[in-house]
Simulated scan of single mutants.
Amino acid sequence: MAETKLDVREIPPAERHPKIHDAFAALESGDTLVLINDHEPKPLFYEMQAEVDGFDADGYSVERRSTTEFVAKFPKK
């Protein structure tokens, strides 16, 4: 059960979701993608919930650390 951190704050918005999906796909079952973002990733949560079978939506969590830092955990079943 490992965590992989991905800070997307410096990545252009149009490139973020593909990088996130690639990073999530590379995880092993039971691992978690820890996403550091500049806004709450609620749209990404809904996208993952609808499109990614391995996403454990019940285990998802997000913490707002500042106005420009949100840390979300996307666990893989």
Rank of each mutant, 00 (worst) to 15 (best):
residue 26 A to M: 09
residue 75 P to E: 03
residue 68 T to A: 03
residue 31 D to N: 15
residue 41 P to C: 08
residue 48 M to E: 07
residue 18 P to K: 07
residue 72 A to N: 03
residue 40 E to N: 14
residue 34 V to A: 06
residue 46 Y to M: 15
residue 61 S to C: 06
residue 38 D to C: 00
residue 30 G to C: 07
residue 10 E to L: 11
residue 43 P to A: 00
residue 65 R to V: 00
residue 39 H to A: 12
residue 30 G to R: 09
residue 11 I to P: 10
residue 7 D to R: 04
residue 46 Y to N: 14
residue 72 A to T: 07
residue 60 Y to V: 02
residue 1 M to E: 07
residue 48 M to R: 11
residue 24 F to S: 10
residue 75 P to W: 05
residue 12 P to T: 01
residue 51 E to R: 10
residue 45 F to S: 03
residue 14 A to F: 01
residue 70 F to A: 01
residue 37 N to S: 14
residue 74 F to E: 04
residue 61 S to R: 14
residue 2 A to P: 04
residue 5 K to H: 12
residue 33 L to V: 13
residue 75 P to T: 05
residue 5 K to F: 10
residue 12 P to A: 03
residue 24 F to P: 11
residue 49 Q to C: 10
residue 62 V to M: 08
residue 71 V to Y: 05
residue 68 T to D: 12
residue 16 R to S: 00
residue 66 S to E: 04
residue 62 V to R: 05
residue 68 T to M: 06
residue 26 A to R: 15
residue 17 H to F: 14
residue 63 E to V: 15
residue 42 K to D: 13
residue 20 I to S: 08
residue 12 P to N: 04
residue 14 A to S: 03
residue 14 A to D: 01
residue 51 E to I: 04
residue 6 L to I: 09
residue 51 E to K: 13
residue 33 L to P: 14
residue 11 I to H: 01
residue 67 T to V: 02
residue 25 A to Q: 14
residue 48 M to S: 08
residue 58 D to L: 13
residue 55 F to D: 02
residue 8 V to Y: 02
residue 59 G to F: 01
residue 39 H to V: 03
residue 47 E to N: 12
residue 7 D to C: 01
residue 47 E to T: 11
residue 8 V to M: 07
residue 36 I to W: 00
residue 57 A to M: 06
residue 73 K to L: 02
residue 16 R to T: 05
residue 16 R to C: 10
residue 62 V to W: 01
residue 18 P to Q: 09
residue 22 D to G: 04
residue 40 E to D: 15
residue 27 L to M: 08
residue 73 K to W: 07
residue 35 L to T: 13
residue 29 S to Y: 06
residue 3 E to S: 11
residue 74 F to N: 02
residue 70 F to L: 05
residue 20 I to M: 11
residue 34 V to N: 05
residue 5 K to L: 08
residue 76 K to Y: 09
residue 22 D to N: 09
residue 50 A to I: 07
residue 30 G to Y: 08
residue 21 H to M: 12
residue 48 M to I: 08
residue 60 Y to N: 05
residue 64 R to Q: 10
residue 35 L to A: 12
residue 50 A to W: 06
residue 38 D to N: 12
residue 50 A to V: 07
residue 69 E to S: 02
residue 65 R to C: 02
residue 75 P to Y: 02
residue 7 D to T: 08
residue 51 E to H: 12
residue 12 P to V: 00
residue 70 F to M: 07
residue 50 A to Q: 06
residue 1 M to A: 13
residue 22 D to W: 02
residue 25 A to G: 10
residue 8 V to A: 05
residue 12 P to H: 04
residue 49 Q to S: 14
residue 7 D to I: 09
residue 75 P to A: 05
residue 20 I to W: 00
residue 35 L to M: 13
residue 33 L to T: 12
residue 66 S to Y: 00
residue 28 E to I: 05
residue 54 G to H: 08
residue 14 A to C: 00
residue 22 D to F: 03
residue 70 F to R: 10
residue 20 I to E: 12
residue 64 R to K: 09
residue 23 A to M: 04
residue 16 R to V: 09
residue 56 D to R: 08
residue 68 T to E: 08
residue 20 I to T: 10
residue 71 V to F: 00
residue 43 P to N: 06
residue 9 R to D: 03
residue 65 R to H: 13
residue 72 A to K: 10
residue 37 N to E: 05
residue 32 T to Q: 03
